[in-house]
Nucleic acid binder design. Sequence first.
DNA 1: TTGAAAGCGATACCAG
DNA 2: CTGGTATCGCTTTCAA
Lengths: 344, 344
Amino acid sequence: MPPAPATPSPVPTSADVARLAGVSRATVSYVLNNAEAVRISEPTRRKVREAAEELGYVPHAAARSLRAGHTRIVLLPISQVPVGPLYSAFFNELQWALRRLDYTVVQYGSLGLSGDEAARAWAELRPVAVISLGEIALSAHNVATLKRAGARAVITLGPVVVPGAHALGMDQTEVGARAAEHLIGRGHRRIGVVVPEEAGLELFSAPRLAGARSAVTAAAEAGGIDIGIEQLAMSYTEESAAGLAARWRSLGLDAVFAYNDEYAMLLMRALQDEGLRVPEDVAVIGADDLLIGRLLRPRLSTVQIGMPTGDHLASLVDQAVREPSELTQRHDLMTAMALHRDST
Amino acid sequence: MPPAPATPSPVPTSADVARLAGVSRATVSYVLNNAEAVRISEPTRRKVREAAEELGYVPHAAARSLRAGHTRIVLLPISQVPVGPLYSAFFNELQWALRRLDYTVVQYGSLGLSGDEAARAWAELRPVAVISLGEIALSAHNVATLKRAGARAVITLGPVVVPGAHALGMDQTEVGARAAEHLIGRGHRRIGVVVPEEAGLELFSAPRLAGARSAVTAAAEAGGIDIGIEQLAMSYTEESAAGLAARWRSLGLDAVFAYNDEYAMLLMRALQDEGLRVPEDVAVIGADDLLIGRLLRPRLSTVQIGMPTGDHLASLVDQAVREPSELTQRHDLMTAMALHRDST
DNA sequence: TTGAAAGCGATACCAG
DNA sequence: CTGGTATCGCTTTCAA
């Protein structure tokens, strides 16, 4: 007796369901999609449903979208760097909200790809929308590639505006500006700005630094005073923080905006260990208003960031998909506000 | 003159490329996939490539995998809860490693779905593998559904073993056990265990608590001594920590294992504000060895966790996909080791 | 070396 | 009310 046929467990298709139920594939499709246009008798419906159940039939998304001519995929390139709890929470929320709107969120790790490579790779999936944080620099040409592949919206959340793309910018310059203004307002005139050495974070750190710079310039001109600002490289390790703290006195600074609360805490601890008093000798301000910033003493002053809700952003995305012609440019989605505690 | 035809920007297909290049679709496919089996003349190749370039042609992944009969999708259900920087970093790494092995990682938010619903939704994408953290409780039947839909491996990283699934468990009980042993070894006999109230974290907190429990039992039996252990609910807010600290003296505990470093820091600060000395009045140990745990004073003792590298896990996944019959069960991928600092 | 054509799975039109 | 069938884009066998 010959062995069983080579196909051990063929994936059941709608044809299998049809065969088992004794109807045509068309009928199966109608029943399973609750098609309103055609009326199918109740016994037939039951037969079909039972057959599908028995076979464990699950429709094939690729086949369906091939037929439909479009997908509901929203592609979310993921970045390699840990962008902090604030952004992580925001992304989770966004995913969620998009799913509720019946989109399938596909996160795609694209580290190390050029804009061209990334755009091609993404386009293969025929996403209906792409939401880029900005970790991959997209050109107008890349946007065109994606649109030609059926993307109805290419949305960038980063600071860089790309022709053809919707920009829902989370303006990080505001963060730096609020921090600098806070320090200046409290009488500080020699301000350091910590810029993380970690690769990938420049997407956030550069605008924050730029914002601080412009705030300093504005304040100096308005008040006719001399304010200094200095960029300080530091990485997220105790050693790096200690190194910076060790040469602190030679820098002649009386305040520092430390990128975010984590870097601020790290640096503040190192400064204290170096014998400097916070805020008397040096004022320290972070950003993101993380809970841990309230645990160290003195309590850390910070810039509180108001992120848009996932629901809100999702609905903007949905709108862009429905009406791609309205090229939205918005930069008011994120708010920043200095929060005075005890470290400044 | 009539307006342009209704189709504004039809997505270019391989047929369009063929037409433009003056060859057949087959030839286009051969050229673009660098088919070794057939030899195509160099001029033809160039013509095809140029035509593809000019049209901005990008192949259609769904059509391709429909034809191929399988995908390279690895489905990663994502949980709603922030599981901490350790896990986030691990997941990033894993994604990366999988992409290098030419898989497409699809993260799928499945919160609120039942096991049945989730399995069906995932199966529609015909993933070649599913890697579940365990946030959705999968039954053997669900695993069967996925396998019938072509999944060659269903892998669970959580503590629950599901029939038919590969288990690459990250054994969280070890964490609790090491923490409890550390505290017992340092002479503590009344141990509290903080269990986060945040939904979703029970996946981690329950095994950590269980591990602490069994370590206590083991030590008590071996030493013939009386050791008490008590579960303490707390959420990640200052209020909750303060509330717990306020009733601390009435609990009669001399040590606490606080789920992880973040909860530990929060509680330690609240205890100190309540006038309790750490570690004299109460010893505190966390877990995950986060950098911030070294910033507070006293420095936080912790349980250091050794996660498998993304590369390692990815290669295990790849192996499971290639050889699905070898049902792997491994629980030694994560290591846990108590780290003594100053808070115990 | 290239072209014609079958077929992957699901859907929707048009007949019956 | 239900069934046959063309179609989506791509790969691959078979013929020429």
